[in-house]
């Protein structure tokens, strides 16, 4: 019995000697290898390649040639590119603030633990996980000018009934409207953000005689600024991406290119015309525009936020 224990102990010691600490660390690093390699090949490399392709006449068939700024010059001449940028800026300018505001209001409404509130939160999250194709078909029906439930409702209320998808202005607006229901991500993030605010702050504010409205402006909102900024940056990049499937399935960019947003134009340039160079140049241009926008917002909000924090 005693000897047996000794021998197992010795065996363990031997094994530890055989597999020193560094081997274990090497093995755990090996675990990271597929993730890093895969991400490099499938995400990092293609993203960097897009920057290079923008300066070539690449079309996947001929070997690419360096054409300098020609693609950008052609873009500046292209009415489609201009319309697509305008559409995208319209979408971002309207959808991003409304989406963040909507997520914030819903998070404030449903943050407390009350009966059935779990169900309400699930309901708010549902449109976000619905398959985009099914969601698009659903809206194709909702927006039908004659039989669609939306116009029937508007008719009941005696409100004007737009032609929605058949008229450029209302079609573009419709794309914004349908994006406003897919705000589950921001909603969940802000619910988490609200949880991090210490209850004690509200209690002491109440003792000092602050109204609910005051404690919202003085406590809740300032403490949520980092979360709201993060969401805004992500939404600037992601919400426009999410227009691809609806604009592809519902309108295919029409009528009169009114719903041709940036991702759809990239798709058309790259996969209908196989003009990868142009598509990449447009992508790069759009990305720089978004980076400038993000930089601008940071410059505007950043200093004030830092001062409040200090």
């Amino acid at each position: 019995m005693r000897t047996e224990q000794l021998t197992t102990h010795q065996k363990t010691l031997q094994r530890v000697k055989k597999r020193p600490f560094s081997t274990y660390q090497f093995q755990t690093r090996l675990f990271l290898f597929p993730y890093i390699l895969g991400t490099f090949i499938l995400v990092v490399l293609p993203a960097l390649a897009t920057v290079v392709i923008a300066f070539t006449n690449y079309n996947t068939i001929r070997p690419p040639e360096w054409v300098g700024l020609e693609n950008f010059f052609r873009l500046s001449q292209s009415a489609y590119a201009r319309i697509s940028i305008q559409n995208s800026l319209y979408f971002i300018g309207l959808a991003v603030p409304l989406r963040i505001l909507g997520a914030l209001l819903l998070a404030l409404l449903l943050q407390r633990k009350r009966r059935l509130f779990g169900l309400h939160r699930a309901a708010v999250y549902t449109p976000t996980v619905i398959p985009p194709v099914a969601y698009s078909l659903l809206w194709l029906w909702i927006l039908n000018p004659v039989y669609g439930p939306l116009n029937i409702f508007l008719g009941w209320l005696g409100l004007p009934m737009p032609a929605w998808l058949t008229e450029p202005g209302s079609a573009r607006l419709a794309m914004v409207i349908l994006s406003l229901f897919q705000i589950g991500e921001g909603f969940v993030v802000l619910l988490a953000g609200l949880q991090t605010i210490p209850r004690a702050l509200y209690e002491s504010a109440k003792v000092d005689g602050a109204s609910g409205w005051q404690s919202f402006w003085r406590i809740t909102l300032p403490l949520l600024v980092p979360w709201l900024l993060l969401l805004t940056f992500r939404d600037l990049l992601v919400s426009i991406e999410n227009t691809f499937t609806p604009s592809f399935v519902i309108t295919y960019g029409g009528p009169y290119y009114s719903t041709t947003f940036a991702p759809l134009l990239v798709y058309e340039l790259a996969f209908d015309f196989f003009d990868f160079g142009m598509a990449a140049a447009f992508m790069l241009l759009f990305f720089v525009l978004m980076a400038l926008l993000i930089g601008g917002i940071t410059a505007l909000v950043g200093p004030r936020f830092v001062r409040e924090d200090a």
Partner: peptide
């Protein structure tokens, strides 16, 4: 690695469409 992964989350999908097509080809 954390920062790298966070930056990756910001790369728009559209940016990788074209060259990923080439790689898959």
């Amino acid at each position: 690695l954390f920062l790298g992964s966070a930056v990756l989350l910001m790369i728009p999908g559209t940016a990788v469409w074209m060259f990923r097509f080439q790689i898959l080809q």
